[in-house]
Structures are given as structure tokens and as C-alpha cells.
């Protein structure tokens, strides 16, 4: 079946079998190699993308469900962030918020969802990260990179921690 979607700001079309996952479509037909498959069981978060602004696990969503929607992968985040991106990238690099980098696209997408909000608390950062597995870093530098990115744009607030 033929579907059309907005991928990282560009209108794209593709023929897909009904059983193909959104992750497979993005990787194999649309060249979005940032979408990593860590489990295809909906657990690790490496395949996270934004669909209409909300993070989803693209390994669990069918490609046909993406018809008419707007999809953002890690490749598209820098453009969405514009002037803010350089600081975010250097936060990840300087803080060593990745080693092997396999989880990083999913992390960047998860962060992008938070960056689209007005205000984010530390516990919301932790909650957002709880669905994203990293085997390398022990998480601390990722939390720090998230908080630095949110703080530098004035979005990190103390909020209600309960």
C-alpha cells in the first residue's frame, strides 16, 4: 500500500507491505539509519522516533500507521532545534553522554520531546529516560546532558518532585 508522510520536514511517499514496521520502513526505504534496532520487543528505546511530536517505539508501530503523520528521527532533530542544537550536541560530546552511541539516537529523540515542552522537572527527565536503555554509560552523563540542554534553554524547573 502507498503511504505518504512528513519525514524530518520533507514530504515522502513509499510502497509498504502491511506487516512492515515503521522502523524497517525508515531504515531500509527512507535512509533514516539513525533508527537503531536494539530489541524489536518494545523495551530498549533505541528505535524511538517522534510521531506528531510524541515519542514512539518505531519497532512496534506499523509503517502504514505512519500514513499522513509527521515523523522526526535523530537526523531531523538538529534542524528542528536550529540555533539551540550546537549546545545540545556539545553537551553530549563534552559530558561523554555516549560511548558506543547505539542508544544515542533514541536519547536525542527522547530529549527532543522534552524540549518541545515549556517546563520540565528533573523527575520528568528521569521518567523520560526510564524507557531508554544504555549499556555503556551508567546513565549519569546522559541525565546531565539532558538537564544541561533543558537548563540552557530555561526549560528545566524544580517543580513538584513527588
Amino acid at each position: 500500500m502507498r503511504i505518504a508522510l512528513d519525514l524530518n520536514g520533507a514530504q515522502v511517499e513509499a510502497d509498504v507491505e502491511p506487516s512492515v514496521s515503521l522502523a524497517d520502513l525508515l531504515r531500509t526505504k527512507l535512509g533514516a539509519l539513525s533508527v537503531h534496532l536494539g530489541c524489536e520487543q518494545g523495551v530498549c528505546g533505541a528505535c524511538a522516533v517522534l510521531v506528531d511530536g510524541r515519542t514512539v517505539r518505531s519497532c512496534l508501530m506499523l509503517a502504514v500507521q505512519g500514513d499522513g503523520r509527521s515523523v522526526t528521527t535523530a537526523e531531523g532533530v538538529p534542524r528542528r532545534r536550529r540555533g539551540e542544537w550546537a549546545a545540545i550536541e556539545s553537551a553530549f560530546v563534552e559530558l561523554n553522554a555516549f560511548q558506543c552511541g547505539f542508544c544515542t539516537s533514541g536519547m536525542v529523540v527522547a530529549l527532543e520531546e522534552l524540549l518541545s515542552r515549556e517546563a520540565v522537572t528533573r523527575s520528568e527527565v528521569a521518567a523520560q529516560l526510564s524507557g531508554q536503555i544504555c549499556r555503556c554509560t551508567g546513565y549519569a552523563p546522559i541525565v546531565e546532558a539532558f538537564e544541561r540542554a533543558l537548563a540552557s534553554s530555561g526549560r528545566l524547573c524544580d517543580g513538584d518532585e513527588t
Binding site: A74, E75, G101
Partner: peptide, 19 residues
């Protein structure tokens, strides 16, 4: 450079399996 990991520019073995 390390920044490419944050922009989806890393390339793992699966990424070399083209069409």
C-alpha cells in the same frame, strides 16, 4: 568526530547492508 553520533551519523554493521 564524535558529534556525528548525536546527529544519527554513526554507522554500525547493519547500516552497511544496503538494498
Amino acid at each position: 568526530e564524535r558529534g556525528r553520533f548525536t546527529r544519527g551519523g554513526a554507522r554500525y554493521s547493519a547500516d552497511f547492508a544496503g538494498s
